[in-house]
Design a binder for these strands. Sequence first.
DNA 1: ACGCGTGCCTGTTGGC
DNA 2: TGCCAACAGGCACGCG
Length: 294
Amino acid sequence: MPELPEVETVARTLFPHIHNCVFLDATVLRDSCVHPASLPFSMLYGMGIANVRRRAKLIIMDLEPVPAILSDIGRQTLDMADQNQYPPYLVIHLRMTGRIFTRAANEAQGKHTRCFFSLQNPAGNRFNLFFDDTRAFGKILLANDAILRNWDFWRNLGPEPLALDAAGFATRLKGKRTIKACLLDQKVIAGIGNIYADEALFKSGIRPSRQADSLNKRERARLLAALQAVLRLSISQCGSSIRDYRDADGNVGSFQNSFSVYGRGGEKCKKCGSILHKERIGGRATVFCEVCQK
DNA sequence: ACGCGTGCCTGTTGGC
DNA sequence: TGCCAACAGGCACGCG
């Protein structure tokens, strides 16, 4: 499941393939992969990819019109700064099983290809950018600033955990809910999913069922440090591959080999040897050690 | 306003 | 062997 480290890895590995490449065409094979607020993908034609970055679990391509291509394909180039003509963001949420990767122009779509784009690189060669998604939860949004401002999910996104300090973290852990539910709430902190929530709670010795506002200052500091350490380590290992996740080059990550608790219910705790406990907390499968986590 | 439960999706797994 | 329920889970949505 792509969470922050996996999405970061996808953005980084995608960049060299598509940087400065220009969209020529788009084919949507399943309508549900297009976000309801999206502008028509035909507005992508003639737009170049200036950057590929990550915010929360979103991949964001920064776009800019490419005058030479626009005139080639017969589009107006009257007002290059008009975001209603040239929307500057292509936003992709992989959700559970989304994958994005490039393929040669002559390669066929797969069984789970939901959408693909034809691009041209600076040398004039064409290739395709595929969006495959088995479970079809993923979304693609072509947006301008106004659309992003009006998108509740975007507007309410919490801070990036790797750019958060103890004081900022403390102010966000309010409310009568479990700390697990808090960590998963994208409005509280952005980019955390089930894997890194469980791993960070184990590393900091905090029980997932604890009420968020019951954590003292020392526990909050431990949790934030654990969260950042786990995310950084996973990014350095190109993320975790459970089953579907691959980066843009088709490679698996390796952080799954370092899991302390995620997916290890019924197995032995690596720290104390007792049997790890599994239960649903915050609506999610949650694994923790009843001895090590208080 | 906030917290919780359900539905969306499809492939895999385990019990009978 | 085959069938089917349970499960995986991020987020939108509806309810109390």
